[in-house]
Design a protein around this nucleic acid. Structure first.
Lengths: 232, 232
DNA sequence: GATGATTTGTACGTATGTATA
DNA sequence: ATATACATACGTACAAATCAT
């Protein structure tokens, strides 16, 4: 499935990306080239190339002659990125409603039904994984590779800031219910409806995020990017 | 103004990007690391890093152990990118209508009036430059750095395929007239109006592009990405 | 503010893989 | 298909700049 990396630079890029996305490496963590090189048992050269790629995709921040850091966008930047993600996801949903093939529509419907089972089981980890596939199916359904690419990239960059996604059973079933609105509109070919349903679904994230910002203002900016709620 | 590059890798990246965007290097051109290194009087190392960055931003295509090429997206990919650019620009216009400051609105209005003069002069090069500033002002007016970044990036990647932008005086004054609709809506705070006016403006590009695709189907795919018309 | 220790930036050589005859 | 030529991937060494002290 996943194309095996043929260069160690690409291999390292993927491994570091995984660590950042999974928050094993938290925002602001310094990424020492020499240390990473010894850890991965390679020279600094492929590590440097991996860091360059990660910087280009926004997962790490780099300044000339300074140690690279895991990206730590400020609150305003994060808010803007969440807003854009809402628009992009809504656009994908709208285009999916118009352009999905029969097979894609039934696949989406089947996935949605499977997720109902998962909600009943209450397994948040499994739901999270299925949720990624659900959104990914809608990116692909828009039949526009570039749109899918930038939407995925945006989602990936925001991943470290959407950790405690489905911490409560209530949020789990609420998420599934919101998905239902999106699926229905897409199956009916209702572009506007799909767009609005997805925007509402993603909007939950933005709202939760906005709440947290207020909290931080009151409590001081210390625990800022620490444990963001959210849930798309 | 423009931050001076502090590393030769960054310097080379910018120089190569300029050449690609200006079509001095046409899509499909091989980028030999050794040749570039000798040309820029540096070792292959910074050249390699520059190429990696350009690959990440989509301006060049890279495969392991193979020579990098100036990016040459196929027709379907290009069509998708133009479509996304339309949505992004329209979104920027909509947000600008809602959020531009007084200063930004009057700056936009002033720029638009200056462009009327340029149209009368018929100088397509000067108009092209002003046009970039016009669109850039609307990206910034949305007050969302991430949105501005991905919109600019998309526009940049498409630049090599929008060469003969304002080749005719007619297109020049038509473009200015379309800008007028956008400006009016933004000044009035009419989000929907601004969005639609911008979508129409960008739509001209898509239409011209679609026409060319048909042409290529009839004439054979040879001269495909050769001399695209368009004009945003 | 100056200086030393540490880290990044660049050069160059070798190994490995690709592309063409 | 095999082999040869050639470009890229990686390792190592040194230069330059940053940051702590």
């Amino acid at each position: 499935m996943a194309r095996t990396p043929r260069t160690s630079a690409e291999d390292i890029r993927q491994r570091l990306a995984t660590r950042i996305i999974s928050s094993e490496l938290s925002p602001g963590t310094p990424l020492d080239e020499t240390a990473l090189a010894t850890e991965f048992s390679v020279s600094r050269t492929p590590v440097r190339e991996a860091l360059r790629l990660l910087a280009a995709s926004g997962l790490v921040q780099q300044r000339p002659h300074a140690t690279a850091l895991v990206a730590k966008p400020d609150q305003a930047t994060l808010a803007g990125m969440f807003e854009v993600m809402g628009y992009l996801e809504a656009l994908c949903a709208s285009l999916s409603a118009a352009q999905m093939s029969h097979a894609e529509r039934s696949d989406l419907q089947r996935l949605h039904k499977e997720m109902a089972q998962i909600v009943r089981s209450g397994d948040t980890v499994v739901y999270s994984e299925a949720n990624e596939r659900f959104h990914s199916a809608i990116y692909d359904g828009a039949h526009n590779d570039y749109l899918a690419e930038i939407t995925r990239s945006t989602r990936q960059r925001l991943q470290p800031f959407r950790r405690a996604q489905f911490n409560t059973l209530g949020r789990l079933s609420q998420s599934h219910s919101e998905h239902g609105d999106v699926v229905l509109a897409i199956l009916q070919g209702d572009r506007r409806g799909a767009e609005e349903a997805m925007q509402r679904h993603i909007g939950i994230v933005q709202a939760a995020f906005a709440d947290l910002q207020d909290e931080n203002v009151r409590r001081g900016p210390k625990a800022a990017a620490a444990k963001l709620p959210a849930g798309a």
